[in-house]
């Protein structure tokens, strides 16, 4: 399985609460190949951001392995992990709250270098900052501006520059375009695509916006309440969704076309609480195909055609294709 740059095995992240453990990420496994984008979709509270952060050990995983280039980074000492994070970066959702308002663009981007003791002098760092600003499309005249003087698109470019300046191999994109207007969103999506080609980057792209995820991802993992319910190639997910939750999610995207005839699956009720989640399949309570077995046995992720699905509707294939 060395084809993967990043391989996550049985990752769990529980948070302690008064009412028992909150299972934000509950036993997920997946791999991301070099140069690939894995999209992670799901509703808020499904654990997609927690998964992204646990992989960088910004949240310490409760259990599981995270293999990066074959090495289990969960075992790394804090010092070694800090070095490792040069290779593994993250871009956050809200460029309005993730940038220190008292630092200039120059200071914000150079901070990544300073924290990691890269560059000999301020002068040398400034050169690097200018280079990376050019790469992400920030005009050099903005180098002494402050975040409040810039629009959301430019702020997000700063966030990307801060990650990129360390020459990472892998970037977790945590809803990088959700706070932006559509036109700006399109500009940033194009930028991310270009950067990936240019630097052979590997992305984990977290978003609740399915059309954005489809656009940028090679493969997509659908999460529901801490579990991956389906993972497959992007086209397969959209053309042939297998898990009832994936189907409901896809059918609820409003599509900007008129006279569209399609079946809508309106889910009843809300996402259940991740504190003491129900035994069995966690989607069973909202699922229109729920069977008695669903309430008792939690389905495993199994190969089914070209997808991996965790659902009792699909019996395990004995002669799996892969």
């Amino acid at each position: 399985m060395s084809e993967y740059l990043l391989e996550v095995k049985n990752l769990k992240k529980y948070f302690k609460t008064k009412n028992g453990p909150l299972c934000a990420v509950d036993d997920i496994s997946f791999g991301i190949r070099k140069g690939e984008t894995l999209g992670v979709v799901g509703e808020s509270g499904c654990g997609k951001s927690t998964a992204g952060r646990a992989i960088l050990r910004l949240h310490e995983p409760t259990a599981g392995q995270i293999l990066f280039n074959g090495q289990d980074i969960v075992k790394y000492s804090p010092k070694k992990m800090k070095e490792m994070r040069r290779k593994m970066q993250i871009v956050f959702q809200d460029p309005y709250s993730s940038l220190n308002p008292r630092l200039s663009v120059q200071a914000l981007i150079a901070e990544s270098l300073r924290v990691n003791n890269i560059g000999k002098s301020d002068k040398e760092r400034e050169e690097q900052v200018k280079q990376v600003m050019d790469v992400v499309g920030l005009e050099e005249r903005l180098i002494n501006s402050y975040p409040h003087e810039l629009d959301g698109g430019r702020r997000q470019r700063i966030g990307i520059a801060r990650a990129l300046i360390l020459n990472p191999e892998f970037i977790v994109m945590d809803e990088p375009v959700s706070a932006l207007d559509v036109c700006i969103q399109a500009q940033i999506l194009n930028l991310l695509g270009r950067l990936q080609d240019q630097f052979n980057l590997t992305y984990m792209f977290i978003s609740h916006n399915l059309s954005v995820v489809k656009h940028i991802s090679d493969r997509i993992a659908v999460m529901h309440l801490g579990k991956i319910v389906e993972i497959a190639d992007s086209a397969e997910i959209f053309n042939n969704p297998r898990h009832p939750y994936t189907q409901a999610l896809l059918s609820s995207i409003p599509i900007p076309k008129v006279n569209l005839k399609r079946e809508r699956i309106i889910l009843e009720g809300d996402v259940p609480s991740p504190v003491n989640p129900p035994a069995g399949c966690r989607f069973a309570g909202r699922c229109r195909h729920a069977m008695p077995v669903c309430k008792e046995v939690c389905p495993e992720l199994k190969q089914c055609g070209n997808s991996q699905v965790a659902c009792h509707l699909y019996p395990a294939e004995e002669n799996s294709v892969r």
């Binding site: 509703e43 808020s44 609740h208 399915l210 409901a248 999610l249 059918s251 609820s252 995207i253 409003p254 809508r264 309106i266 889910l267 009843e268 809300d270 996402v271």
Partner: peptide
Amino acid sequence: LNVTIQAQVLE
């Protein structure tokens, strides 16, 4: 709101 909840509210 989340997409599935959005669909409910729009309906």
